Simulated assay, not measured.
Amino acid sequence: MRHDDIWRALDALAAEHGLTASGLARKAGLDPTTFNKSKRLTGEGKPRWPSTESVSKVLDAVGAPLERLTELITGNAVAPRRASAAPQRRIPLIGLAQAGAEGYFDEAGYPVGGSWDEIDLPSVADPHAYAVEISGDSMEPVYRDGDIVIVSPAAPTRRGDRVVVRTNEGEVLAKELVRRSARRIELASLNPAFPDRGFDIDEVNWIARIIWASQ
């Protein structure tokens, strides 16, 4: 269990109930700044973990079992079974070039607003998953122009994962995660003709894992 996975799960739990991280803390009777991003690292850059008491209060406040938080941490939530349902789901769709504009994501990287298109794609467990249509050749030969990828904000990210990253400047990239520390993220380009990239943590708005592609 990783530090980033715990915080991402709490962000996902808040979003499920229409709350921000601050709103979730307030609902649980905690200081509204308890779950702020600035509180997730110490002044020396070391990981700061939420207390078990805080987690317990949050689960009580939203009426969620501990199992739900565990599902969000691991990214292995099980979708409810329906006897005759087809394994499809309508999920939000955005173009890669569009994704850098304001108004499409909240601060945790979850889709918001009413300007998204929709598309029928294989069902995934994350209720906040969305689709991105690749444009251009910067991700060839892995992803080509017109390919659709499903992105899961709740899925934990690890070295070697293909991810979508949005910077605070509005740049959106699809890369391979090489290394993630408390201070920096290193990314490898999928197309060898394009350079690898690296960012300080405070330059990154969010990072989310690609869990499916239409190829």
Rank of each mutant, 00 (worst) to 15 (best):
A83D: 12
A12V: 15
P87V: 15
A97I: 07
V149I: 08
D161A: 10
P80M: 14
G29I: 09
A15R: 06
V163R: 00
D196V: 09
L10F: 01
A193C: 01
A125R: 11
L66P: 02
I201A: 15
S51L: 13
I73R: 14
K57H: 06
A85Y: 07
E203I: 12
R144M: 15
W206F: 07
D120Y: 06
W49L: 15
L72Y: 12
L121T: 02
M139N: 06
K27Y: 01
P111S: 14
A99T: 07
V164K: 00
G43T: 10
K175P: 01
G136Y: 15
I150Q: 11
A174W: 00
E53K: 08
S115T: 08
Q88N: 15
K175Q: 06
G23R: 08
A61E: 03
D147L: 11
D11K: 07
A155M: 11
A193W: 00
A25V: 07
A99N: 07
L93G: 00
D126H: 09
I73E: 08
A174V: 06
L66A: 12
V149L: 06
R40K: 13
I150A: 03
R209C: 01
A99M: 12
G29V: 12
D106I: 08
L93D: 01
G113T: 03
A193Q: 13
N191I: 00
M139W: 12
S181T: 05
I211D: 00
L41D: 03
E44K: 06
Q88W: 10
G113E: 13
I134M: 14
S56V: 05
F35I: 13
V124G: 03
